[in-house]
Computed example of a mutant assay.
Amino acid sequence: MTATRERTLPSVVEVCRTRAGVELKEFFRQRESVVFTLMFPVILLLVFGAVLDYDLGHGVKFTQYFMAGVIAAGILGASLQNMAISIAAERSDGTLKSLAGTPMPRSAFFVGKIVQVLVVTLALIAILLVIGVLFYDVDLPSGTGWLTFAWVTTLGSAACTLLGVAVSSLCRNGRSASATVTPVALFLQFISGVFFLFSDVPAWLQTVAALFPLKWMAQGLRSVFLPDVLAAEEPAGSWELGRVALVLGLWCVVGLALCVRTFRWQDRGTD
C-alpha cells in the first residue's frame, strides 16, 4: 500500500523570487550585457572626467555636472536598452513562447525583469559614485538631496523599464534589436545634457529632448549634484522638480499602457 502525497504548488511570491534569481544569473553570465550595461558608463566617466576636467564656474567642475548625466545614461542603459534588447532576443529564440506555455504566472516574468533592472541599477549607481568620489572628488548629495536622488532614479528607472518592454515589440527580431535601440539611446544622450552642458544644446534639440524621460531624469539628478546657483543655467531658470516628477510619472503611465497594448510572447508571423 503506497501513500499518496499531495503536491502543493509554490506560491506566487516563491515563483517570482525564483524567476528573479534566474534573470540575475542569466544577466551576469552574459559578458556582453555586463560590459555594455555596467562598464560602458564607467568608461565614459573615466574618459570624460580625465579629458573634460574644467571649471564651470562657482567652483564646480565638469565632472560634478557629468556625474548626473552619466548616472541618468546608465539608468537608461540598464532599463530601456537592456529590456528592449534582451526581451526581443528571448522572443526571437522562443524563450518567451516556452515560458508562456508553463504554469508559471506571467506576472512572475515581469517581476523578474524588474528585480534585474533594480539590482543592476543600484550596482551601477554605487560603482559610479565610488569612482566619482575617489578619482574626481565629486561631492555627494546631502540632506534632502538623497531623497530627491531616490525618487528621481526610481521614477526614471520605472519609466525607462516600461518603455524598454514596449520598445522590444518594435524590434523585428533579436538580431536587429541592438541596431534598432542603441542609436536612439545615444541620440537621446547627446541631446539631453549627458555629454555636454544642456544649455549648449540648440534650442530645437532641447525641445525634442524634453519629450523624453532622459532629459528630465538628468535634470532632476543635476539638482542634487550641483549648487542651486547653477539652476539659472537651466531653460526655465530653475530645477523644475515638480515638472520632473510629473513628466516621469506620465511616462510611467504611458509606458505601462504601451506594454499592455503591444507586448507579444512570440515574433510576428509565428504561431
Rank of each mutant, 00 (worst) to 15 (best):
I85P: 02
T121G: 15
N173I: 02
V208S: 10
F135D: 15
V224A: 10
S157G: 15
S142K: 13
M217H: 01
A50W: 01
A126P: 04
G74W: 05
C259I: 00
L246W: 08
C259N: 02
V208K: 07
G242F: 06
L96V: 00
L163M: 02
E23A: 14
G74R: 04
Y136L: 04
T8C: 06
T18H: 11
Q64M: 00
L128D: 15
L24F: 07
L56E: 01
G145V: 09
S107L: 13
F195E: 10
A177I: 06
T95G: 05
G237K: 11
A177F: 08
T2G: 15
G242I: 03
L134M: 14
V254I: 01
Q30H: 13
E14L: 05
A150V: 15
E233P: 04
K61A: 08
T121D: 13
E6P: 02
I87Y: 10
T121N: 12
V51Q: 03
V60K: 00
K61N: 12
L155Y: 09
V13D: 10
A89N: 15
G145K: 09
F225A: 07
V13Y: 06
A68C: 15
L162D: 01
V181W: 06
G242W: 08
E90A: 00
T37Q: 09
L80Q: 15
L258C: 00
A150R: 10
I114S: 14
I131K: 03
T18S: 12
I114H: 13
T102C: 09
T270H: 11
E26M: 08
G255Q: 01
I87V: 13
A88I: 01
E32G: 07
T18M: 10
G242V: 09
C171K: 04
G249S: 03
E233S: 04
E240V: 10
L162V: 05
L162R: 14
A158H: 14
S33N: 15
F149C: 15
L38E: 14
V224Y: 00
S168Q: 08
R106G: 11
S169T: 04
V224E: 09
T8M: 12
V12M: 06
F48S: 01
I43E: 08
F190L: 14
R31W: 10
T2P: 14
G255F: 06
T37W: 06
A159S: 14
L52G: 00
T207Q: 09
L170G: 10
V138P: 11
A218Q: 11
A108V: 07
E26T: 09
W251A: 03
L226P: 07
F225L: 01
G94L: 08
A158T: 15
F40C: 02
S157K: 01
L221V: 05
V13I: 13
V60N: 00
L226R: 03
E32A: 14
G156H: 11
A166W: 05
G255Y: 00
P227A: 06
M67G: 02
V42K: 04
L96H: 09
F27N: 07
A185S: 07
Y54N: 12
A245Y: 04
V117C: 09
T148E: 12
A88S: 03
T154E: 09
R261E: 05
